[in-house]
Structures are given as C-alpha cells and as structure tokens.
Amino acid sequence: MTKKKIVLAEDNSTLSLLLKFKLEKEGYQLFIAKDGKEAIELIEANEPQLILTDIMMPFISGLEVISHVRNKLNLEIPIVVFSAAGQEEMVLKAFNLGANDFMGKPFSPNELLIRVKRLLG
C-alpha cells in the first residue's frame, strides 16, 4: 500500500518535527517546507494528497500557496490552514481562496491527526 503524501508548510521547526513524528507514526509520508516557496516546490514535485500550511510564513505566505495550488496547478486536494489568534481576516481569505479546514494555533497534534484522517478517508 502506498503511503499517502502530505506537504507541511510551517516555519516553526519544533512544531514541524512534532507533527512529522505524529503523522509518520500513523503511516503518512511527510514533506516539510520552511516557507511557502519551498512548499510550492514540494507540492509540484511530490503531488501530495493533503497540504497543511501555516498562513504566516516568510517569503511566500500560506495564502499564496493556496492560490497557487487552486489557480495555477488546478488541484482539488484538501488544504488545512493554521493561524495564530487574531487573524480572522486571513482565515476568511484562506477559505475564499479554497482552503478546506482551519486550525487555530496552538492546536493539539491529536486533533490535527483526526482531521487529517477525516480528509484523507
């Protein structure tokens, strides 16, 4: 059985590693990007089944990642966005651009896992 691929775009390396550990333990294959630019490269190279992205990142934001996936690549894959408190406007923009789900930071990795499983069936 091929592992489902997930691209995680998150500039906090502690959180990335924690999520990588959690998700790989559940049998997913994880590709980690430190910023939106890297995320786009990983998405184009690996054709993941799911994208997890922080909204606020250096260089290219999570919003630009969503826009690129939906408009340039025309992909329908599920996208979950993370955002720190007080960024409601950003979150609404993310949904308007085509995000499927949202998690406020800080969040529980176990809750994220439940959402990932739900989105990946």
Rank of each mutant, 00 (worst) to 15 (best):
T2K: 11
T2G: 07
I6L: 12
V7Y: 00
V7N: 01
V7M: 11
A9G: 05
A9V: 00
D11Q: 01
L15Q: 11
L17V: 02
L17M: 08
L17W: 05
L18D: 09
F21W: 07
F21S: 12
K22I: 06
K22T: 13
K22C: 13
K22P: 05
E24K: 01
E24A: 06
K25C: 08
K25S: 15
G27Q: 03
Y28T: 02
Y28H: 03
Y28F: 15
Q29L: 13
L30H: 00
L30V: 15
F31C: 09
A33F: 00
A33N: 08
D35I: 11
D35L: 10
D35F: 13
G36E: 02
K37W: 09
I40C: 06
E41I: 04
L42T: 01
L42Q: 11
L42Y: 12
N46R: 01
N46L: 07
N46M: 02
E47H: 12
P48R: 03
Q49G: 08
I51S: 06
I51D: 01
M56C: 05
M57H: 07
F59M: 01
I60T: 13
I60W: 05
S61D: 09
G62V: 03
G62Y: 02
L63F: 08
E64D: 15
I66E: 00
I66Q: 03
S67N: 14
S67F: 12
V69Q: 04
N71K: 15
N71D: 12
L73M: 14
E76A: 08
I77L: 15
I77Q: 04
I77E: 10
P78S: 09
P78L: 12
I79R: 02
V80T: 11
V80D: 06
V80M: 14
V81Y: 04
V81K: 04
S83N: 09
A85I: 15
E88T: 08
E88W: 02
E88I: 06
M90W: 06
V91M: 07
L92V: 14
L92W: 07
K93W: 05
A94K: 03
F95W: 04
N96K: 08
N96T: 09
N96M: 08
L97A: 05
L97K: 11
G98T: 00
A99G: 11
N100M: 07
K105D: 05
P106G: 10
S108V: 03
P109C: 12
L112M: 13
R115H: 07
R115V: 13
V116C: 09
K117R: 14
R118I: 09
L119M: 15
